[in-house]
């Protein structure tokens, strides 16, 4: 009886070790050996995590703002396509970001959806434009017709503000993305749209 018990125990121990080994083997693929790079859905959260601004936020904001801008009376009822200039978004968050990405995405999506109802002025390319104009005027290049540089009817700009909290390595960030269309003649804010995001990030005990 005693011998049988010992065998049973040893057998169970062997099974236990095998089970643990199987468990470890099953977990092994999660430890490494994934492809170095791959295409991912820009709307999906990435594996790095983080509580900052993601591609999904940029895309959601553009989707949300474009429709509202195009239905603003000053745009929708304009007799000729209003001209818009991008003015840099102010960053009041704790995240180092290229805020131009937000306006560039908005501009692209507006132009795609506006069917010519709005025009954007390339003020960030003014140096190149002036050089080209001067060369045309000097006869270096041909010119179909001479035009005056256009003034803006509106500025499209924005502000990012946040409330951030920390506890050990955990973080919580509430960010307000605020965009405005400002009359470039009398400074009236003719439209403002906002998008809010709150994110929380926790690190496991491994990273304490």
């Amino acid at each position: 009886m005693l011998q049988r018990t010992r065998f049973a125990s040893q057998g169970s121990l062997l099974c236990a070790c095998l089970a643990a080994l199987l468990l470890f083997t099953a977990l092994a693929p999660t430890i490494g050996c994934s492809p170095l790079s791959k295409h991912v859905d820009p709307d999906a959260d990435d594996s790095l995590g983080g509580t900052g601004i993601d591609s999904g936020d940029v895309r959601t904001i553009a989707d949300k703002m474009v429709g509202k801008i195009l239905t603003t009376p000053e745009i929708a009822r304009a007799t000729s396509p209003p001209t818009i200039v991008l003015d840099p978004v102010r960053n009041g968050t704790r995240f180092v970001i290229d805020t131009d990405i937000l306006l560039i995405k908005l501009r692209g999506q507006l132009l795609e959806n506006a069917n010519g109802r709005v025009r954007f002025l390339a003020r960030d390319r003014l140096d190149a434009i002036e050089k080209e104009r001067a060369a045309k005027r000097d006869g270096v290049f041909t010119a179909a017709e001479e035009k005056a540089l256009k003034g803006a009817d509106f500025f499209l700009t924005g502000d990012l503000r946040s409330i951030s909290k920390a506890r050990d390595s955990d973080r919580s960030d509430y960010i307000i993305y605020s965009f405005q269309l400002i009359d470039a003649e009398d400074s009236t804010i003719v439209w403002e749209g906002q998008h809010e995001v709150k994110k929380e990030g926790k690190r496991g005990t491994t990273y304490r």
């Binding site: 999660t30 790095l48 995590g49 983080g50 509580t51 973080r171 690190r203 005990t205 491994t206 990273y207």
Partner: peptide, 16 residues
């Protein structure tokens, strides 16, 4: 570096 340091990688058995 700051972006990685502020990220939240999921805990992995390998890390434990």
């Amino acid at each position: 570096a700051g972006i990685i340091m502020g990220s939240f990688p999921s805990s992995q058995p390998g890390a434990i």
